[in-house]
Design a protein around this nucleic acid. Structure first.
Lengths: 133, 133
DNA sequence: TAACACTATGTAATAATATAACATTTAAAA
DNA sequence: TTTTAAATGTTATATTATTACATAGTGTTA
């Protein structure tokens, strides 16, 4: 059994918003959307985001400064993340591919180092945008 | 022969600074360091950085909002980048590994998509920091 | 050379992203 | 119940990045 994380009030509000969204959300857009629920300050948002990232419920898309819910039910504390990002419509999908993650977690650099944590972002055009070209 | 990019005055000043540095530099630290050379405003720095990234002379370390010179003499327009980042001392190294880049450029997702562009950041402890633990 | 297009520069203002510092409250554990 | 850790609330501020507008240089081609 995985460890169950009981989300606090603010964490739950913010996770629910991100989880319902079909696109990555930015911190200040989250703030704007939760002000009616009593979350007034950026720091309240960032603290919840930090915690949610830490426990693997959401991921940060580094190149976009935005956050999405983890799509991979099996990844609780996800230190190995991969995403595809459409450079036209900005659609982001999480990639859950066992072969890929195994390959990367086993990757050894020139100095013989292995890495238990990585973030990979693929860029291109999604199918929709490709067909419109 | 690769296309030769003649850097403009500001681009050269900023590239030289980054290239001499042994660590990733942040935009405002760059600004501070080039003010004696007549570059006064953030935008002048960001414009040069944008161009240098575009032509592959430097890369942005997305998780750190910082910039390093391309270590890979053969990558002019580098759309396929990989780095190792030490979570303790923040040392960053560019990984130039043909097998890895081939693997990633050939990676096909569940929808059958391939991606000609990616950025990969590995996290861990560098040798020095590991031995200090 | 003159006209044009394109790239780069300079400057001021401001937007967007993120953290520091401090006081208080709540929840969980001993 | 005491005490410890985690979360909250609030104000202020730091850091990162872009918009808008005016000007200057560079290279092409007519």
């Amino acid at each position: 059994m995985e460890k169950q994380h009981n989300l606090s009030k603010n964490q739950k509000i913010i996770f629910d918003l991100i989880d319902k969204s079909h696109e990555p959300l930015k911190a200040y857009s989250i703030l704007f959307n939760v002000q009616k629920k009593g979350i007034n300050a950026p720091l309240q948002v960032y603290r919840a985001l930090d915690k949610l990232v830490e426990i693997g419920k959401i991921h940060k898309i580094e190149s976009r400064n935005a956050f999405i819910a983890c799509q991979n039910s099996s990844c609780q504390i996800s230190k190995a993340t991969a995403f595809s990002i459409c450079e036209s419509c900005e659609k982001v999908s999480e990639i859950s591919n066992t072969k890929l993650s195994k390959y990367l977690l086993n990757f050894t650099d020139e100095a013989g180092m292995k890495y238990s944590k990585y973030n990979l972002e693929f860029f291109g055009l999604c199918k929709k945008c490709k067909s419109k070209e």
